[in-house]
């Protein structure tokens, strides 16, 4: 297991380096002088000259990359043009919202996706299955912002059950009750993903159900529900768990739209606002953080995969 983890970590490094190089190059692809781009329109000629020296912008590109990478590894992602504060702290400010939103969304995805997927698979071909798998495909076809807007319209404006926008930190007044601000956003974000999980659970279970070992399980005289859960679902879980991981990893960036609809102070909205504000250091920083997070979560998924499937760890 340890060796496997080490091996997977090693294979991650080149990809990570290449991805970080792309993120680094991003600023250089924008037309104009990188130092002025990073400092924004209001910078003085002196400031530009200073940053040019600091970042070694007069050096060859690859030297600049390693200087930048060195800074990044020390936690220095540059300074926000808009906030005039370190990019890392700007990102950290959005982290609570984004992480809570992602976790709550994940809870919905599991709670909605798995039982309906299992139901759909066990009722394969019957009307229940047709309705649920058709409904899942329909749900996956709805633009998230549209769903979010109508959820606000119905449940905030109409019924007044949930707040329509913003998210005060859990450490503010209200404490845990502030989570109610995330109910509608997390449901919005969960809908298309839960739909995909339903379809995946169903498809994987139907695949496993055809395997020979399921017949063996039935031949033991096990109750069909027992066969469905202990043998079919347990084996289908190998593929489904991987999808949970990928979904979770993608949630932070998918939340861009949802956070905008509900005006949540998360990392997703930060990306959009920074793009509109041309706050390039923040854009660069956020992309880097999301990409690294995305890759790390995917690695964890791989490792979890090895735990779920005994055949993998020994290979």
């Amino acid at each position: 297991m340890l060796a496997y983890t080490a091996k997977r970590l090693l294979t991650l490094i080149p990809t990570l380096l290449a991805a970080s190089a792309l993120v680094f190059l991003f600023v250089h692809l924008i037309p104009g002088d990188p130092a002025s781009i990073l400092l924004g329109d209001t910078a003085t000629a002196e400031e530009v000259a200073q940053l040019t020296r600091e970042m070694g912008l007069d050096q060859p590109l690859w030297v600049q990359y390693f200087v930048w990478l060195g800074n990044v590894l020390q936690g220095d992602l540059g300074t926000s043009v808009f906030f005039k504060t370190p990019v890392l702290s700007v990102i950290a400010a959005g982290a609570e919202t984004s992480i809570l939103l992602a976790c709550m969304t994940m809870v919905w995805i599991v709670l909605i996706g798995v039982p309906i997927g299992v139901l759909s698979a066990t009722m394969h071909g019957k009307w229940v299955d047709q309705v649920t798998s058709g409904g899942a495909m329909l749900a996956a076809s709805i633009p998230t912002f549209w769903l979010g807007l109508y959820l606000i319209f119905i449940f905030s404006v109409g019924l007044g059950w949930f707040p329509s926008s913003g998210f005060p930190s859990l450490s503010d007044d209200g404490g845990l009750a502030n989570l109610r601000y995330l109910v509608l956003p997390s449901l919005t974000l969960a809908a298309p993903n839960a739909a995909l999980i339903i379809r995946l659970v169903r498809a994987s279970m139907l695949d496993v159900a055809r395997e020979d070992h399921v017949r063996t399980a039935r031949a033991k005289g096990l109750h069909p529900a027992n066969v469905a859960i202990k043998h079919v679902f347990r084996n289908a879980l190998i593929a489904v768990a991987a999808a949970f991981g990928f979904t979770f990893a993608a949630l932070i960036s998918e939340a861009v739209v949802t956070e905008t609809v509900f005006s949540l102070p998360g990392i997703g909205r930060l990306v959009v606002q920074s793009i509109l504000r041309r706050d390039y250091p923040v854009i660069q920083g956020v992309i880097l953080v999301i990409v690294v997070l995305y890759m790390v979560i995917n690695l964890l998924v791989d490792l979890a995969y090895a735990r779920l499937d005994p055949r993998v760890s020994l290979k």
């Binding site: 990809t15 990570l16 290449a18 991805a19 792309l22 991003f26 692809l29 924008i30 990893a249 993608a250 932070i252 960036s253 998918e254 861009v256 739209v257 990306v271 959009v272 793009i275 854009i283 992309i287 999301i290 990409v291 995305y294 890759m295």
Partner: peptide
């Protein structure tokens, strides 16, 4: 593989910025 390290929407946003 490297490009796939970028989640779809994020990649779209990065490109759009340029």
């Amino acid at each position: 593989d490297v490009l796939m390290a970028f989640p779809a929407l994020l990649m779209a946003l990065v490109l759009i910025t340029l």
